[in-house]
Amino acid sequence: MSGAVKISRELIDVKLEASSNATNPVIKFIAIIAIAVYYFMITDLYRMYLLIFAILIYYNFKALPYQVAKPKYRFLIIFSLLIVIVQLAASRQGDLVFFLIPKIFNLGPFFPIYQKGLFYAILFVGRFWGVITISWVFIDSTNPFDFAQSLTNLKVPYRLAYSLSLALRFTPVLNNEITVIRNAQQTRGLNSTPNSIKGTYNLLKFTLFPIISSTLNRIKDITLSMEGRAFGLYVDRTPLKEMPLQILDIIQLFVLILLLMLLLMF
């Protein structure tokens, strides 16, 4: 074995050793599900928002290894507003808290806000933010192919496991493509912040075609790349990284579930 080849081999061993010490992605996935379930079981708004806040702080200040771009909060805020409007309009239970539009002279008041409506609006927004933020942490801290391998260890067929991991791998890529296309629209004189329904319709219309074209091209290229390297040739494949379930992973999961149960009970 030549000197250079020997060096490569040592570097590979170091790299494999480092990745075997990371938390098993399946355990991480179960933990995420457990936290999401917790969000749907509790109605204590203080605890819920405290947990969301803690996760947001962790997410924004910890450099997660697979993070490609910080998410835009605008979409979350708009969607949250929609949830609030629907809940406030739909629920008329509980005490009347206030009117959104107070009585002015002989007009009004309009849009009564009831206690239950307000409560459900804040609860559902919390659940929505909770699930989204915890999924950000999972996506940005997990190597998609380690996740696929750990699923394969649990007897999930590797073709299925890799389809899932490819979706994770290319989510940020697609996000980036959308940004490029939005930029391209503006360089061709299209207003990216239209203030009319027609403008918004045009913006969506002129995003759809390039995104479809770009996604189809990407799928074609990745298919050629994978098939051109014998993906799916055999029923089994040899994983370089084993990603076995370790005792420490199971202990971590157990502690988390115990903690969540305690939080639910007390």
Binding site: I12, P144, F145, R169, R229, A230, L233, Y234, R237, L240
Partner: peptide, 17 residues
């Protein structure tokens, strides 16, 4: 296809089992 250099080079031989 993958996220790092080692995985990318290993991808084909892994498929060859």
């Amino acid at each position: 296809v993958t996220s790092n250099v080692l995985e990318e080079v290993a991808f084909g031989p892994e498929n060859l089992n």
